[in-house]
Write a protein that binds this DNA or RNA. Structure first.
Lengths: 125, 125
DNA sequence: CCCCTTTTTGACAATCATTTTCATTTTCTC
DNA sequence: GAGAAAATGAAAATGATTGTCAAAAAGGGG
């Protein structure tokens, strides 16, 4: 329950899209905070470890985070331009993944599923 | 049709799983090749640009490559331990992704889907 | 074959996100 | 309030990936 971690969590909660550690650090500094970059990284690490935020990797390997509404397992529909994300569910996909894994004799099957596109907002401009 | 690119392609074709640029470089050097690391990166870049190899990112952001049999759109069932991969298909997933994107007003919808687990081979040991 | 242009190559330096280190500050507990 | 434990942040270290640039290889006429 550190103050800094809470600061980072709130900064992230105020965003609709995925943000990188560097982004959040810049946001916080711009907002007057004296937080250090290392602390932002540590906070995000802790938050994602505890499952409070979701992480994914951009095409160029950068980690981006999001504070989602749902605590349950879900996926994302992410805008390629503004990175805004919508939480989505796909029961059929869950089953398919588990089934395909089992069929090939794999155990402890998990999956990553993300959908990308250009949101209506960005398509306009 | 450079010799080096062909060398890298073949090295990758001989693998069943996903391999990083660093891995391939080490393999090639161990096999007596005098290839440079930069060239391995360039070859992989070109091969993935032309769609001849598939790329994905490990949890820690490293890019890993695979020369797949299928040239068509497909996904992978990847072993968490040995990185061996099986090419899989999921028509239902394709449709679901497209539908979910459209429903939220997104255009140019694409998706990434990977399934992970421990293969039968690795589960044994 | 030889000369010249174009492409490819590779050693090395530069980037950039992320992690480590370590000394300082803050928070907790008694 | 004192002392131990956890959190913080500045700066250095790491590690994958990319940029630079000069040398080497490949083509293509003549």
């Amino acid at each position: 329950m550190s103050t800094r971690r809470e600061t980072v969590r709130q900064a992230l909660t105020g965003c609709t899209g995925f943000r990188s550690a560097q982004d959040l650090y810049a946001d916080l500094r711009a907002g007057g905070s004296k937080i250090g970059l290392t602390t932002v990284y540590r906070a995000l690490q802790a938050l994602s470890d505890s499952g409070e935020v979701d992480v994914l990797r951009t095409d160029d390997g950068e980690a981006v985070y999001r504070a989602c509404d749902s605590e349950a397992h879900h996926h994302h529909l992410v805008c390629r331009k503004c990175s805004t994300a919508v939480e989505i569910e796909g029961p059929a996909v869950e089953e398919w993944a588990a089934e395909v894994g089992a069929r090939h004799g794999f155990t402890g099957v998990t999956h990553t599923v993300e959908v990308f596109g250009t949101c209506a907002e960005c398509a306009r401009s």
